[in-house]
């Protein structure tokens, strides 16, 4: 067996010119991209006022705040916080359900295998623009309409999820197997029969999984829409941060963490029961 230094590099070079003699453009591409990314990064730091002194004083301030947070303590407002947490969970559940109910019929009009492109295109763009607006912005709009409170939060989550669900559901419908639909048509079913007996049995488990997942992620969204006044635990959190009650803040954050973990656990179990292990993973 030849030792490594016996390898004839000159011969290798001659045999594989495309490995050893790459053109300068392809050799420089990666470093150039990295340099460009770094340049934008540095420009960003300068433009956004990242001075070292400010950063260090901020960090020490942050350290001070973290010390103040210990130990987490709700003071005397625990019942109030529990009620707010319940409100948050209610907002997530209702908002997601409402969004799913609204999105189901609309998603049919955004699926390639159900409607022609001329219908599908505007519906898709409509859903895209709804999704382009953040939940918090929807919350602000709804507060203008129905007033401050959790109801505005429910509607905000419903609208912004409506956009997301419309897209996800229509994709689930598009990926459904057409053979069953053809079978229904062959036995003389109408278009509605095709949807009800050909598509829905295939699509519903997928949709149920997605809805559960969104309830989970909306628990997170629902915690923050309170910051702009749309009810729930975010309202309490924003208030306590503004009045610098750090022990209460850390307690509220802990409550959010526990609630999200609990919802994760439950919805994981439910998804597992509905669509089986394979689809969850």
């Amino acid at each position: 067996m030849s030792r490594p230094q016996d390898v004839d590099t000159a011969e290798l070079r001659a045999r594989y010119p495309h490995v050893f003699n790459r053109p300068a453009s392809s050799r420089l591409a990666t470093p150039a991209m990295l340099a460009g990314a770094l340049a934008i990064f540095v420009f960003g730091l300068v433009d956004l006022d990242f001075s070292p002194s400010r950063f260090i004083s901020g960090l020490s301030q942050l350290g001070w705040i973290s010390m103040m947070m210990m130990p987490p303590d709700p003071g005397s407002s625990l019942p109030l916080y529990l009620k707010a947490l319940g409100e948050t969970l209610s907002i997530a559940l209702l908002g997601t359900t409402l969004a799913a109910l609204l999105a189901l019929p609309v998603s049919l009009f955004a699926a390639r295998n159900i409607v022609p492109g001329i219908v599908r295109f505007p519906v898709r763009r409509f859903l895209d623009s709804i999704r382009g607006v953040d939940t918090l912005i929807w919350a602000l709009v709804w507060i203008n309409v129905v007033g401050l409170g959790p109801f505005a939060g429910v509607l905000a989550i419903a609208v912004s999820d409506f956009g997301a669900f419309g897209k996800l559901f229509s994709e689930a419908i598009e990926s459904a197997d057409q053979k069953q639909v053809e079978g229904i048509r062959a036995s003389g079913g109408s278009a509605l029969h095709e949807i009800r007996f050909g598509l829905m049995p295939q699509v519903l488990p997928v949709i149920a999984g997605q809805v559960l997942y969104f309830i989970e992620s909306n628990t997170r969204s629902a915690t923050i829409i309170g910051i702009v006044g749309a009810g729930g635990i975010g309202l309490q959190l924003a208030e306590q941060i503004r009045v610098l009650e750090w022990q209460k803040v850390s307690f509220l954050i802990l409550m959010i963490l526990v609630a999200v973990a609990a919802i994760d656990f439950i919805s994981g179990k439910l998804r597992f029961a509905i669509i089986g292990r394979r689809a969850v993973a």
Binding site: D49, R54, L59, I65, L136, R220, I227, I241, V249
Partner: peptide, 27 residues
């Protein structure tokens, strides 16, 4: 998990208190 679960805007609220108003807190 902690960094992922606490919503970004909550961190922003706290950082605004520590670093002052402005984009640094957002970043």
């Amino acid at each position: 998990e902690f960094a992922r679960t606490v919503p970004g805007i909550v961190f922003a609220l706290i950082f605004v208190m520590a670093f002052g108003l402005g984009p640094v807190a957002g970043v």
